[in-house]
């Protein structure tokens, strides 16, 4: 790890003032479960590390007129146990699926959205697009855990556990910089980089993700994660669904896949197909098949198409109380 300056400001204003115009100037530290390993591996070497855990206004979960506000430094553990989360089982399931009790006690919801991909070529120093000699290492390499959607040149999968559920719930994030703040839909927060100089999220180096806002609308929602190991393992594929019900039928649906693309991956055609239907084995199965239509698996990850399909079906049945 390179030497760095450590700052632990007490207010958001002080914190944003400590950030810089490039990622090498300063990076934000919350749980540290990702940043510290990135620094130890020399993948990032910021001149300054800005700890935001002492900033009171970035914590807490509260009800607002518009819905529920989750502070960026709320841990997975706090999130999963909070009474206001009872209406959001899709988030609770995703939070409880994260790694281990230790990570859930340290890792934060803001960090979950801002963490960097786990692609082993990226972590091995080949950059976000895994390039060597002008060519991505992924298509001809070991790609069992890589993307089945998106079509390149980015083949990593978004590591965010909460992202798919937040997109399905129509959540937004607030980003604050010294010059002001902006609110971005979580679906717009994640972006697919087209070159190695781009990043996979919309956040800028002088911004802090301060809170997540979930709209009040009531939905039946659920997340299903397929993990090889029961715990302490990244999912192979996940699906989060949120259903606005119209009596016993689906009014409108959101279906978002996780760990299958460089971003949480909305399955628009499946959403459309579910409208007006009641959820049962057959409709869930049909929607699941539509959700993975158009997948472009690589040489070793065709199995993830099946896993994503199963995740959609099981998440739908779970949300409908028919699991």
């Amino acid at each position: 790890m390179e030497r760095f300056e450590y700052a632990s400001p007490a207010t958001l204003k002080e914190a944003t003032a400590l950030l810089g115009s490039s990622w090498s100037d300063a990076q934000v530290l919350a749980g540290g479960t990702d940043l510290i390993s990135l620094m130890k591996e020399y993948l990032v070497s910021p001149k300054r590390v800005v700890n935001i855990k002492s900033i009171g206004e970035l914590g807490g979960i509260s009800k607002t007129g518009a819905g529920v506000r989750i502070g960026a430094t709320v841990t997975f553990d706090e999130l999963s146990a909070h009474p206001l989360m009872r209406d959001y089982p899709s988030l609770v399931t995703a939070a409880l699926g994260v790694a281990s009790p230790q990570i859930r006690n340290m890792g934060t919801v803001g960090g979950d959205l801002c963490q960097r991909p786990r692609c082993w070529y990226y972590r091995g120093g080949y950059g976000l697009l895994a390039m060597k000699d002008g060519k991505s290492l992924v298509p001809d390499g070991e790609n069992r855990y890589h993307a089945i959607f998106g079509g390149g040149p980015a083949y990593f999968v978004s590591p965010s556990s909460l992202g798919p559920a937040l997109v399905a719930l129509g959540a937004q994030v607030k980003l604050v910089s010294p010059s002001g703040s902006r609110t971005v839909g979580v679906d717009q927060f994640f972006v697919i980089p087209k070159s190695d100089t781009e990043r996979e999220t919309a956040i800028q180096s002088d911004e802090i993700l301060t809170e997540i806002l979930i709209p009040a609308a009531r939905t039946k929602n659920a997340t299903y994660e397929v993990r090889h190991k029961d715990a302490l393992d990244w999912p192979l594929a996940t699906a989060s669904v949120a259903l606005k019900m119209n009596g016993s039928k689906v009014g409108s649906a959101r279906v978002v896949l996780g760990h299958v693309a460089p971003t949480p991956w909305p399955a628009a055609a499946a959403e459309k197909a579910l409208a007006g239907k009641s959820i049962d084995e057959a409709t869930a199965e049909e929607a699941a098949a539509i959700a993975v239509d158009g997948a472009q698996p690589l040489s070793q990850n065709g199995y993830k198409v099946q896993l994503a399909k199963v995740a959609v079906k099981r998440a739908l049945l779970e949300a409908a109380g028919k699991a």
Binding site: W120, Y121, Y126, L137, D140, E142, A231, D233
Partner: peptide, 22 residues
């Protein structure tokens, strides 16, 4: 990795070991 000659999982993240619930 065939292309780089490197071990891709020299860690305890993708070099997977069973946990207590497995």
């Amino acid at each position: 990795d065939q292309q780089t000659g490197r071990v891709l999982n020299p860690d305890m993240e993708f070099y997977k070991l069973a946990g207590i619930s497995d």
